[in-house]
């Protein structure tokens, strides 16, 4: 069995994978995988998360470089907008006859 030392020498870092499909508008986070560097991460992502479909854009970021917001701050980020309900299309009552809107 491998000892601690070899395990850490052969341990591959974790990468987060973001994919934008052919018809897509944004890159979506699809999961993670292990790779030694960005080039391999992209190749691996192509094999694992796209099954080598063409026309797909892949972003890879080493997991340790992803910074995330703290969930209990989310309240302060998003609550104010909840007051501004007039931003939401369903706020407005419009006649049924009106089309294309």
């Amino acid at each position: 069995m491998e000892n601690q030392n070899t395990e850490s020498r052969s341990s591959w870092p974790l990468w987060e994978i973001f994919i934008r499909s052919k018809q897509g508008l944004d890159h979506k986070h699809v999961g993670s995988l292990h790779a030694v560097d960005a080039a391999m991460a992209i190749e691996n992502a192509r094999d694992v998360y796209t099954r080598r479909m063409e026309g797909i854009s892949i972003w890879v970021v080493e997991s340790k470089y992803v910074h995330a917001s703290n969930p209990d701050e989310a309240a302060s980020f998003y609550d104010p907008a909840n007051d501004k309900v007039y931003r939401h299309p369903t706020f407005y009552q419009l006649p049924d006859e009106l089309t294309h809107m």
């Binding site: 052969s10 341990s11 030694v36 560097d37 391999m40």
Partner: peptide, 23 residues
């Protein structure tokens, strides 16, 4: 599974070593 992992150690190590050299 143990065998595949053990026999693969040198491969994983080599890939890591090469990536570090490149970096």
């Amino acid at each position: 599974r143990v065998q595949a992992h053990a026999e693969g150690a040198w491969v994983r190590e080599a890939a890591m070593a090469h990536a570090q050299k490149m970096a």
